Computed example of a mutant assay.
Amino acid sequence: MKKAIATQAAPAAIGPYSQAIEANGTLFISGQIPLDPATGEFSADDIKGQTRQVFRNIGAILKEAGLGFEHVVQATVYLADIADFAAMNEVYAEFFAAPYPARAAFQVAALPKNAKVEIGVTAVRA
């Protein structure tokens, strides 16, 4: 009924969770932080660079599942500082076209490894 999706082109899970789970044609991608899978380190210090890396990670997981950004129906964005919303949103818009996924965005007290952004998405096979 459910199938784990994993790729070495995105950071490995660092706990008891999967990079993604597919169930009944719906793909649930765990929140991604801006780790470069090759180095295990942040690829950038600024919000735009970190957001791009998050989407590279999400894109790699989508690709492993045979999907793309056009299949994403929902996104949840966690920001360490809501003041970064506009800059994150600029990069976000580079990866999606209308009709855009439903989305929620929140400022949180802290993110793993002191990341500036974490994003999780849900995608559906059409």
Rank of each mutant, 00 (worst) to 15 (best):
K2R: 14
K3Q: 15
K3V: 11
A6H: 06
T7E: 03
A9T: 07
A10P: 00
P11S: 15
A13Y: 00
I14M: 00
Y17F: 03
S18L: 11
S18T: 08
A20M: 05
E22G: 04
A23I: 09
N24Y: 09
T26M: 13
T26R: 15
I29N: 05
G31A: 05
I33R: 01
D36E: 11
D36I: 09
P37S: 07
P37M: 08
A38F: 09
A38H: 12
A38P: 04
G40R: 13
G40P: 07
E41A: 14
S43E: 07
I47E: 11
I47A: 13
K48P: 02
G49A: 07
Q50K: 08
T51K: 09
V54R: 07
R56E: 08
A60R: 03
I61C: 07
L62Y: 00
K63F: 02
K63P: 01
E64L: 02
A65R: 11
A65T: 07
G66R: 13
G66H: 11
L67R: 05
L67W: 08
H71K: 12
H71L: 04
H71T: 05
V72P: 02
V73T: 13
Q74D: 13
Q74G: 05
A75W: 06
Y78Q: 12
L79P: 02
L79V: 01
L79H: 00
L79M: 03
A83T: 05
F85M: 10
F85Q: 09
N89S: 07
N89P: 01
E90K: 03
E90Q: 05
V91T: 15
V91S: 04
Y92T: 01
A93Y: 14
E94D: 12
E94M: 03
A97V: 09
P99C: 09
P99W: 08
P99L: 10
P99M: 10
P101E: 10
R103G: 04
R103T: 03
A104F: 10
A104S: 15
A104R: 14
F106I: 06
A109V: 12
A109D: 15
A109K: 15
A109Q: 15
A110Y: 10
L111I: 00
N114R: 12
K116M: 13
K116C: 09
K116A: 14
V117E: 10
V117H: 11
V117G: 09
E118A: 15
G120M: 08
G120A: 14
T122K: 14
A123V: 02
V124Q: 15
R125S: 02
R125L: 01
A126W: 14
